[in-house]
């Protein structure tokens, strides 16, 4: 079954959500003023609110969600496991750790590219460890445990860095990284991370056919003509780039890549290849909506996106895990 309506509907909803994000906020703007501001008309204040604050924030939210969603869907295909996801597997935490390292030791002063690069290196290293472990073990449980180990280790290292934080400002910087947020993002930051995110997503998209083949297991997949080694490299590279760049833009946001693919899969005949694009769109949509909620819920301290994502995503993770039959270990 190919749901032809799926992608167009998701694109439409995503555009609507990004537009809504420009309308809503501490001071809601009416539709006509947002339209005017988007096309460079209207008052200067409106243009500033839309172009410097709300639109980049909404686009950052969408990009981060899409990158994590497609990475989740691709890793689930590669590891043949609905619980695989950059956050669960420790990829996001590792990326956040290397990014924090770069912040802590002042490497960021070398250039704007240092932070994204550090996050991407962390993400690639963690994804490679997971993929390497996946070659040696067939057990899903083992892989998840390795991810838990990676997450815990990255968490411990982050705590260590926070322990030695020279001043409260550095400390709050690091906390922001760990919690994940798209507040105050500018087009400047998007410019440095979006190409890497899109590049990673493109690699995943163009290597998607192999994920269908892996449905049959690795032995039969190579039997029907899949180059297993190349597939692993491409998926690890794509997911690492996309996740690393998303962490560079928004910090560690966990569990995003688990909810959307899980809901999309039945609509695309449970084919990992066909789940990539809708999962990316749907994840982006979810994060944009979650970020709108954060902005309009009146709280003294703004809620962090990563916290909200985990509040929704972690119960979903537990629920999906409980649905699985124990026999396919």
């Amino acid at each position: 079954m190919r749901a032809l309506w799926l992608n167009p509907v998701l694109v439409g909803l995503s555009l609507t959500a990004v537009f809504a994000a420009c309308l809503l906020g501490s001071t809601p703007l009416p539709v006509d003023r947002v339209f005017a501001a988007l096309f460079g008309m209207g008052s200067e204040a409106d243009q500033l609110v839309v172009w410097a604050i709300r639109l980049p924030r909404a686009l950052a939210a969408f990009l981060v969600g899409a990158a994590l969603g497609i990475s989740g869907a691709a890793l689930q295909g590669l590891l043949r496991n609905p619980l695989a996801e950059p956050g669960v597997l420790g990829v996001s935490a590792s990326a956040a750790l290397t990014a924090t390292f770069a912040l802590y030791f002042g490497l960021v002063a070398l250039g704007d590219w240092v932070l994204p690069l550090a996050a991407i290196i962390g993400a690639l290293a963690a994804t490679a460890i997971i993929a390497f472990a996946a070659i040696r073990t067939q057990s899903v449980v083992t892989l998840i445990l390795i991810g838990v180990g990676l997450s815990s280790f990255a968490g411990a290292m982050m705590s260590l860095l926070m322990n030695f934080a020279p001043n409260p400002f550095t400390l709050s910087d690091m906390v922001n990284w760990m919690l994940g947020s798209v507040a105050n993002r500018s087009f400047q930051e998007i410019k440095y991370t979006a190409p890497v995110m899109l590049g990673g997503m493109a690699i995943l998209f163009f290597s998607r056919r192999g994920l269908s083949a892996l449905t049959l297991g690795e032995e039969a997949a190579s039997g029907i003509g899949l180059n297993l080694r190349n597939q692993r490299i491409l998926t690890v590279l794509g997911a690492g780039l996309a996740t690393g760049a998303s962490v560079a833009l928004a910090g560690a946001i966990g569990f995003v890549g688990i909810v959307a693919p899980h809901l999309i899969r039945p609509l695309v005949g449970h084919d990992p290849a066909r789940s990539l694009i809708p999962s990316a769109l749907f994840s982006g949509l979810i994060i944009v909506l979650a970020d709108i909620c954060i902005r309009i819920i009146p709280t003294t301290n703004e809620l962090k996106l990563g916290v909200v994502a985990a509040l929704i995503g972690a119960p979903a993770f537990v629920w999906i895990a409980m649905q699985r039959r124990t026999s396919d270990g």
Partner: peptide
């Protein structure tokens, strides 16, 4: 692998369906 697959179909002993 693709060239081989066009000449020989292979049914391995374990045939899991992941999805």
């Amino acid at each position: 692998p693709a060239q081989r697959a066009r000449m020989i179909s292979y049914l391995p002993q374990s045939r899991p369906l992941s999805w």
